[in-house]
């Protein structure tokens, strides 16, 4: 049910296609390879720049992580499936709205981390 998954994740059809290619390959890929994989199963091929635009948008939405490789960039999906993207998006956008989270994810400073670890070691 691609349409339902896309709705849940708030993804467009091209975005969903890009993510499917990346999930299927299971490794970071540059834009050119993703475009080739999409066009392999497609009647009317997509332009490289179209795929680049879609992937840049996904990177801006923090759905893809981008890292430098040689002269270009390679992209990895941050979440394991579109359901996870939806969950992440809702928590990030509405984390402060009428819900009580067990603990906010934070950049744990070393002092606090050490104090928590100290609590693990000595039982009361």
């Amino acid at each position: 049910m691609p349409d339902q998954r896309a709705r849940g994740g708030g993804l467009g059809p091209l975005e969903a296609e890009v993510l499917r290619v990346l999930w299927d390959s299971g490794r970071p890929m540059p834009v050119r390879e993703v475009a080739e994989a999409i066009n392999a199963g497609r009647g009317s091929p997509l332009a490289y720049t179209t795929v680049l635009t879609v992937m840049s948008r996904l990177a801006r939405k923090k759905i893809l992580a981008r890292s430098r490789s040689g002269r270009g960039y390679i992209y990895t999906p941050v979440a394991a499936d579109s359901a996870e993207i939806a969950v992440r998006g809702v928590l990030a956008e509405f984390g402060d709205a009428a819900l009580a989270r067990f603990v906010e994810q934070v950049e744990l400073d070393p002092g606090l981390r050490a104090r928590l670890q100290g609590l693990l070691e000595k039982p009361r």
Partner: peptide
């Protein structure tokens, strides 16, 4: 400790507030 610590992925880290 497990739930507050950030996941390794830097793209996710960037979306979170720094510190406490």
């Amino acid at each position: 400790l497990k739930l507050a610590a950030l996941p390794a992925c830097p793209a996710v880290a960037a979306a979170r507030p720094a510190g406490d």
